[in-house]
């Protein structure tokens, strides 16, 4: 009877070896965590990201003048342009690091199905980036406490707009980490991945900005840098959209664009991993 049920609902018969001795996704995640935590570079990247978020927000806060507009939340996230380098480096290190160091051989002989490794890297990178970004928000809030008190800028988490900006900052930094992971895993060279990330996040956007129009503005809105819309408050979004002839993405649309880039790059990396050779 049980055998019949198994056939009917297509439940694979769980092999003893797979349950006790074999490769499982949970075990691959544990392995990827062991690898990441065993290196110095990622630890420094996390520390530097949090420190940079606090320092940049504090320094930018010193230049605040009455009547500049903005809010406590926009001040806390104001270091974003440089802070995102941290998660980007983290993702690229995880995605491309194995190939340069020759350890891909070890990794993929242990997990010859390969894709569980990429999935585990996504999980580990997302968790570390999320934690780092949350710590960055906390550090920047602490570092700007004095300036905010002096200029009367509130930071009330009960306020919907404030909560959205802070959550958007955390999400966009996590998205950038996964963008780095996707590029690193696809290109397998850290330098190439950084170059491509710089092009996609900054350079192309700035080049297109010199020639505004319906087409260029639309392209700009669909670049992964659109993820930075997540940390704009209502006034910021309004002024950005007023200056653009591209599509109106709303407060969350930029995050969706970044998410689609991440999904597309990870899919391409998975395809290369699945089809090709591990060199």
């Amino acid at each position: 009877m049980r055998a019949l049920v198994r056939v009917l609902v297509r439940v694979p018969v769980r092999r003893t070896v797979a349950g006790h001795a074999g490769v499982t996704v949970t075990r691959v995640v544990a392995s990827e965590w062991t690898k990441l935590a065993g290196l110095r570079a990622p630890v420094w990247v996390v520390v530097a990201t949090v420190a940079a978020a606090a320092a940049l927000a504090a320094v930018l806060g010193m230049f605040l003048r009455p009547g500049d507009g903005g809010s406590g939340a926009t001040l806390v996230v104001s270091g974003h342009l440089l802070v995102q380098l941290g998660p980007l480096v983290l993702g690229v290190l995880v995605g491309a690091g194995e190939y340069g160091a020759g350890t891909a051989t070890t990794t993929f002989t242990a997990v010859p199905r390969r894709l569980p490794v990429l999935a585990a890297q996504v999980a580990v990178t997302a968790v570390v980036a999320l934690g780092t970004a949350a710590a960055a928000v906390a550090a920047a809030a602490w570092a700007t406490a004095g300036v905010r008190a002096g200029s009367g800028l509130a930071l009330d988490l009960g306020d919907g707009e404030t909560a959205r900006v802070l959550a958007g900052y955390v999400l966009s930094l996590t998205g950038v980490a996964l963008l780095g992971l996707g590029l690193g895993a696809l290109l397998r060279r850290p330098a190439a991945a950084f170059g491509a990330a710089a092009l996609l996040l900054v350079v192309v956007d700035h080049l297109l900005a010199t020639n505004p129009g319906r087409v260029t503005d639309t392209v700009r809105a669909l670049l992964p840098g659109a993820g930075s819309r997540l940390l704009l408050d209502d006034a910021g979004l309004a002024s950005l959209d007023a200056a653009s002839l591209g599509p109106d993405l709303g407060p969350w649309g930029g995050g969706v664009v970044l998410g689609l880039w991440v999904a597309g790059l990870l899919a391409a990396a998975a395809l290369r991993l699945r089809r090709g050779d591990v060199v």
Binding site: A21, R27, E32, T34, K35, G38, L39, T103, A110
Partner: peptide, 17 residues
Amino acid sequence: HPGRTAFRHLLAQARTH
């Protein structure tokens, strides 16, 4: 990986299984 200790390298391999 040159930056990982021998023990960590082996432990990461062992954890997959």
